[in-house]
């Protein structure tokens, strides 16, 4: 990448991949000239939409207004997280870390999310990951305030949590080396002070990997994984095999 400034056009046209987007976003925070150019060219690109004007079917209006009526709005940009003393300094990787939680293309061409060099082998989990809201995942990973934390899974593997206060959400990726035996499954939990652990979903029997978007994640203190009977439990019944403090 000899001259990153020249990427402004492709960036504005959404013609870059997620990694280039993340690195250009980082560049934009440092380069005022590109910031001004991108703001202006974004206006220009939006004008290209003038040529596509097309009246949507009337039911779209009803559907949108109905969904809006039950959709909570996000507050204006959240206040920066207050620094609090911690037993261990969290690794604040910001964008370089987010960029390493990348969208990669599997052999079949299906978009899947993988964490660094971890291999996500479970076919069904891959399909599931591809279906889970990609735009939302990208949005969270690209947030300027994203924080990435990881913990090992007992028995091998990792749980990675990327969390953004700005979006009031996080992405939890689990990739274990092996599935629990005896018809048991992994189950994800979020832990919040003063309330019972909340289930964020149980995996299927034999499933070792999963990706999920957890709305409201920054309000939680930990993400934990336990081994539970097939179908999952209402509350954790075993000691966590992985726990990620947030």
């Amino acid at each position: 990448m000899t001259d990153i400034h020249t990427l402004a056009g492709a960036y504005v046209l959404d013609a870059v991949d997620d990694i280039e987007r993340a690195s250009f976003d980082r560049h934009l925070r440092e380069c005022a000239a590109c910031r001004t150019e991108v703001d202006e060219l974004q206006e220009t690109a939006a004008r290209l939409a003038d040529a596509t004007w097309s009246v949507p079917p009337p039911r779209l209006r009803e559907n949108v207004l109905a969904e809006v009526a039950r959709t909570r709005q996000l507050p204006p940009v959240a206040a920066p997280p207050v620094a609090s003393p911690r037993r261990r300094a969290p690794r604040r990787w910001l964008l370089s870390a987010a960029a390493s939680v990348v969208v990669a293309a599997a052999a079949a061409g299906t978009a899947v999310y993988v964490v660094q060099d971890q291999r996500v082998r479970d076919e069904r989990a891959i399909a599931e990951a591809a279906r889970s809201s990609e735009a939302r995942v990208r949005e969270i990973l690209a947030a300027p305030d994203v924080q990435v934390r990881e913990a090992a899974v007992t028995g091998g593997g990792r749980v990675t949590v990327a969390s953004s206060r700005l979006h009031d959400a996080g992405v939890v990726v689990m990739a274990a080396d092996s599935a629990p035996g005896g018809g048991q499954v992994y189950q994800l939990w979020t832990i919040r002070a003063g309330s019972d652990p909340k289930s964020e979903g149980a995996l299927r029997v034999g499933q070792t990997a999963t990706l999920s978007v957890v709305e409201g994640l920054p309000g939680a203190s930990d993400v934990a994984v336990t081994v539970e009977p097939a179908g999952g439990s209402l509350q954790p019944t075993t000691t966590p095999v992985a726990q990620v403090p947030l």
Partner: peptide, 10 residues
């Protein structure tokens, strides 16, 4: 192509 996208938009 990268350059043409940029100077085209400009």
């Amino acid at each position: 192509i990268k350059t043409r996208m940029r100077d085209g938009l400009i």
